[in-house]
Computed example of a mutant assay.
Amino acid sequence: MSDPAPPHRRAVLSGAGALALSGCATLSGAPARQTVWTFDRLADIGGERTTVEGAPALIDSPYGRAVRFDGVDDALFIDSHPLAGAETFTFEALFRPDGGAFEQRWFHLAEEAPAGQPPSQTRFLFEIRVVRDRWYLDAFTRGPGYNHTLIFPERLYPCGQWFHVAQTFDGTMYRSYVDGVLQGEHPIAFKPQGPGQASVGCRINRLNYFNGAVRQARFTPAALAPDRFTRR
């Protein structure tokens, strides 16, 4: 991903500044606010309080420093749900899957239920499925009135390489992409999610750990066309 602003925090950009810094525009061409998290550190990701579990490590990548997860017990927990309140969205990430367990849930945005209420099941997930030395993407979102997985086992990619992945919703259609190539789409009755937390390296309930590295994520409350995804 391109990284024109200070890497540890590009936080929320708006108006012409967002367009100029990130090449970000909606399908209609209007600029949109966005949040960018760069994983070049183990604290204060995106300026948010970050809790480290296990021993994730900083490594060099072709795009700058990244965080490496061991697939056993490494994880980061971040006190923010960057797409909370968004009616449409683009959720992007630059990552390197390194093989390992079949099911790996490596990026989780979770709505937090109000105090005294049952745990919320509303969430976004990026997952992968590993088949020997290859993987395929699982993009997922769930909330009141919607629950859909975009998963296509025939679309396999090699482990040990860097990839850009994205999931988007334009008001009607939910889509997923790998390196800007559409994996699949399905209409959903999406409703905005509430504030919450994120986990990187595992599911929020500490299952399905990730073996690989994450460099950056970008969250936009608008559906971007693939030519407006973050460049790498």
Rank of each mutant, 00 (worst) to 15 (best):
H148S: 03
I204V: 12
D227F: 08
P114K: 07
G71P: 10
V214H: 06
A57V: 14
G85A: 06
L109W: 03
V130P: 02
A139I: 09
L182R: 14
A223S: 15
A222K: 03
E154S: 13
Q216L: 02
A225V: 01
G29C: 06
F190I: 11
F152D: 10
S120Y: 10
A213D: 13
G100D: 12
T90R: 02
M173L: 15
N211V: 03
F210R: 05
A101V: 09
Q216V: 01
A113F: 04
A43M: 09
T90A: 09
P226Y: 02
A223Y: 05
A20M: 02
G64C: 04
R203V: 00
H108S: 09
P195R: 13
W37Q: 08
R232C: 03
D74V: 12
R132E: 13
F77N: 06
G100I: 14
R206D: 06
A43C: 05
F152A: 10
S80C: 14
R49V: 08
E111S: 09
F163A: 03
E111T: 13
D170F: 04
G194K: 12
A25E: 13
A30T: 11
Q197W: 12
L182V: 11
T149G: 00
A93R: 02
A223W: 05
G201R: 02
V67C: 12
I151Y: 00
F229D: 03
G196T: 08
T35Q: 10
T88P: 03
A11Q: 10
A93T: 08
R33W: 07
F95S: 03
R175D: 04
R123Y: 01
R215H: 15
A55I: 07
T50D: 08
T26C: 13
T35G: 07
H81S: 05
Y177I: 13
P114Y: 04
V12G: 01
R96K: 15
V36F: 00
G184P: 08
G64K: 05
S199N: 07
A43G: 01
L19F: 08
R123H: 13
Y146D: 00
T149Y: 05
W162C: 09
A86G: 10
G85T: 12
S14M: 01
D227V: 08
A222D: 11
Y63V: 04
V52P: 03
R10N: 04
R218F: 07
Q34A: 08
R155K: 14
E92H: 01
G196W: 05
L150W: 03
P226Q: 07
G85M: 11
L13N: 09
P4D: 07
E185A: 15
P119D: 11
G100R: 12
R41L: 06
P158L: 01
R10E: 11
T51P: 01
L150A: 06
M173W: 14
R132I: 04
D170M: 06
